[in-house]
């Protein structure tokens, strides 16, 4: 095994892991999007066909998967904005740590109310 390079600013640190997470969430969201266009296309077939498939979105297991999907989307969205700021805002790279914290804060602020509301719907409150 080659020894770990010393003093790297990127490798193994939050910058690298947010890049990895951006890729994984991106692929996951894309795969869902393909399925989601196909299920929505059933509105062209019949109301019954569409209602039946959309019914599966309301079952508790799929409801929990939707929580995961929204978690991924929120991360990908705000991490993407962080990337844009690092690329285009002159002070972006200097404040990269604060931007990372900002992504986490916005994620929590939007995700928590969503989970409460969505799970209330799914588990019938």
């Amino acid at each position: 095994m080659p020894s770990k390079p010393a003093g790297t600013l990127y490798r193994g640190r939050e910058g690298m892991w947010s890049w990895v997470a951006h890729r994984i969430t991106g692929v996951g969201i894309f795969l869902f999007l393909l399925v989601h266009v196909l299920d929505t296309a059933l509105v062209r077939v019949s109301p019954e066909a569409y209602n039946e498939v959309i019914g599966t979105y309301k079952n508790p297991i799929v409801g929990l998967l939707e929580v995961g999907l929204v978690a991924a989307i929120l991360f990908h969205a705000f991490n993407g904005i962080r990337l844009i700021l690092v690329d285009f805002w002159a002070k972006g790279p200097r404040y990269q740590r604060q931007l990372m914290i900002g992504v986490g804060v916005i994620w929590v602020v939007l995700f928590v109310p969503f989970v409460i509301r969505h799970l209330t719907h799914v588990f019938g409150g």
């Binding site: 569409y50 209602n51 109310p113 969503f114 799914v122």
Partner: peptide, 12 residues
Amino acid sequence: LMLGGGITALDF
């Protein structure tokens, strides 16, 4: 997903 009945209100 947030407004109205959220996912329970989704249908044709």
